[in-house]
């Protein structure tokens, strides 16, 4: 049985159909990336999976006992709320110290355990949120444009960390991204969403598909450039 299967999902926000007839299945341990233009329903789809939005039609079938770790797009912490990294890690459930240390280590922010959240850089905070999501040993890790605001180097590091985490925990990863070329080399499968799913498959297949090119307004040369780009760096390629 699949880890997660979504079928015939319709979801409207404010009377406007944001997702229409979406079908998607996720297997254990695979990294799937959702790409699509702004307003194509990517975040809405993730929110419906975590249960923050209820669909009008269709179903979201989670395998029994599945644990979800969620890293939000950007977390705004009100300046009036004092918060240390280690306190954030204990929300909402208390965790033993060694588990917190392991999670922070996995996310690459061991040094920051006693820092105030407001003193962290954007990249460090994103990693802390990743560590927090890892604490529950998730079967499915959901990342909503988790690398927004990071520079190229930070982004590449972050995705490498995700890949490492997937190997260590064996969890599936579902993420949304704008960074097309990074996505291309970091995923097992790419799903193009534009209200409905217009194409899906291996990164190579999707990059070459006319639907994908049309969606991002790429001509043949652009798409080819994108394709070359991610093939020109074999060191960052994922093993399938």
């Amino acid at each position: 049985m699949s880890l997660l299967s979504i079928a015939a999902l319709d979801l409207a926000l404010g009377g406007h159909l944001v997702l229409e007839n979406v079908h998607l299945t996720l297997e254990r341990g695979e990294i799937v990336t959702i790409v699509g233009p702004n307003g194509s329903g990517k975040t809405t789809l993730l929110k419906s999976i975590i249960g923050a939005l209820a669909p009008q039609r269709g179903y979201i079938d989670k395998s029994p006992g599945m644990v979800i770790g969620y890293v939000p797009q950007r977390l705004h912490l009100d300046a009036t709320l004092p918060m240390t990294v280690s306190r954030l890690m204990r929300l909402p459930r208390r965790r033993p110290r060694h588990e917190i240390e392991t999670a922070l280590d996995r996310a690459g922010v061991t040094q920051q355990a006693s820092s105030q959240i407001s003193d962290l850089s954007g990249g460090q905070f994103q990693r802390v949120l990743l560590a927090r999501a890892l604490l529950s040993s998730p079967d499915l890790l959901i990342l909503d444009e988790a690398t927004q605001g990071l520079d190229q180097q930070g982004m590449a590091d972050f995705y490498r960390q995700i890949e490492r985490v997937r190997h260590e925990l064996g969890c599936a990863v579902l993420m949304v991204s704008h960074e097309l070329h990074v996505v291309m080399r970091a995923s097992d499968r790419v799903v193009c969403l534009n209200r409905s799913i217009c194409c899906a498959g291996t990164p190579e297949r999707v990059a070459a598909s006319p639907e994908y090119r049309a969606m991002f307004g790429l001509d043949d040369e652009d798409a080819l450039a994108l394709y070359r780009h991610h093939h020109s760096r074999p060191s960052l390629e994922m093993s399938p």
Binding site: K47, I50, A52, G69, Y70, L75, L77, L81, P92
Partner: peptide
């Protein structure tokens, strides 16, 4: 704990 998590971020709360 729940109030604090919900204060932090609604989606984070939902996911927990």
């Amino acid at each position: 704990s729940r109030l604090l998590t919900a204060t932090l971020n609604a989606d984070l709360a939902h996911a927990s």
